[in-house]
Nucleic acid binder design. Structure first.
Lengths: 202, 202
DNA sequence: CGAATATAATACCATTCAGTTCAAAAATCC
DNA sequence: GGATTTTTGAACTGAATGGTATTATATTCG
């Protein structure tokens, strides 16, 4: 029963909506919002101008969709790493390494859409989204650290909230350096040392 | 002898070159390179279009001048803090606090030109400048940490280079959060804790 | 097959943009 | 005072940009 998806009425699309969003994301990620033209998007997404406007709305609306999809993708992967089977030390180390790998992946632009691109935008929706995402991510990392306390992997007085903020600040710093062209290997080494310091304090 | 500055030949300028660069810097800092139009600069700098082009060159050239001036200004201030009369712990703490204060100053845009704006630019000169600045700043902080070892304020085996990179990554994270709208007070508290952790490992 | 529907493809439009031209104005030099 | 120099001020230009209108094409439904 593969043919369960009933074809819609009119002429079929030549692209998948999800793929198009992913491609648009890469364009914005590489060039920034203001640096991206509609023609860049048309070329990058493989979607013609009128279809682009009809299906995704204007440039700001499209960016917002990209941002939401980006956070969902990266968030799921990060959560998998953070709440996987590893102990807390390995989980945190892997989280920082994941940030570095994502920011230095040669199959996508360097840096991070939510750190290097979106914060510069003059858009209330974007601002709110980023602020909320920051709070939620901080809370998630803090939750994982608390689990580490419960598992006796961290001292009972470990300052989870504070160290969670530090971890995320650290990852932002590593990601910005990735954007500056520092190599993946150097950043991965620094990520390991940062995890070590933040968790064990040495 | 105040009148020692001989007036140049033609019609006098209605602006100071240095002030104009400072104002242009604020415009780029707030809106990003691609988000800034020449009209924004004309309005922000108080310099008319033809004068702007005649004196400062095109938009990219002007940006580069702003970037150099920005680094010189902030760099001098940061150096004063870092190599001032304080012990190494206070110096490092003050350095992080300086970054936070600069990124949350209500008299200038939030964030940092060299962290939030310039890395996004597709310009080889800018890239080289940022990479060099990063290396030089890392080296300067490491030098200050080594002085701390010599002054017996840090253990002899203190990993100066590594911790210097961590400190700067941390400051980048704090600055990005400033751009997201986190309050100065919260960031200052986190800066204090970060300095504590990075220097004393707890 | 013919009507209906949805996308593709092309061309178009008004606006904005980076950068320029040129006459008028304000100063110094001789 | 007249020539010279430099900036100002306003208007101009060609290209690029965000967004749209229109027609052609591919598909389903009856």
């Amino acid at each position: 029963m593969v043919k369960n998806i009933k074809r819609p009425r009119g002429r079929p699309r030549t692209f998948s909506e999800g793929d198009a969003i992913d491609m648009a994301t890469k364009v914005f990620w590489a060039k920034g919002f203001d640096g991206t033209t509609i023609d860049d998007l048309v070329e990058g997404m493989g979607v013609r101008r009128p279809s682009l406007y009809a299906i995704f709305g204007d440039k700001s609306t499209l960016f917002m969709r990209c941002l939401v999809a980006y956070r969902e993708n990266k968030g799921k992967l990060a959560e998998g790493v953070l709440f996987g089977p590893n102990d807390v030390h390995e989980a945190i180390r892997s989280l920082l390494r994941f940030a570095v790998k994502s920011a230095t992946d040669h199959n996508s632009p360097s840096g991070c859409l939510m750190i290097c691109v979106a914060p510069l935008m003059d858009d209330e929706n974007v601002r709110r989204f980023l602020a909320t995402a920051n709070e939620e991510t901080t809370a998630a990392v803090a939750r994982r650290l608390k689990q580490g306390i419960e598992a006796k992997e961290l001292p009972v007085d470990f300052p989870c909230e504070e160290r969670s903020r530090m971890l995320l600040d650290m990852s932002r710093g590593l990601v910005v350096r990735a954007k500056l062209g520092v190599t993946r290997q150097k950043l991965l080494d620094d990520a390991d040392r940062a995890a070590e310091l933040i968790l064990r304090g040495q």
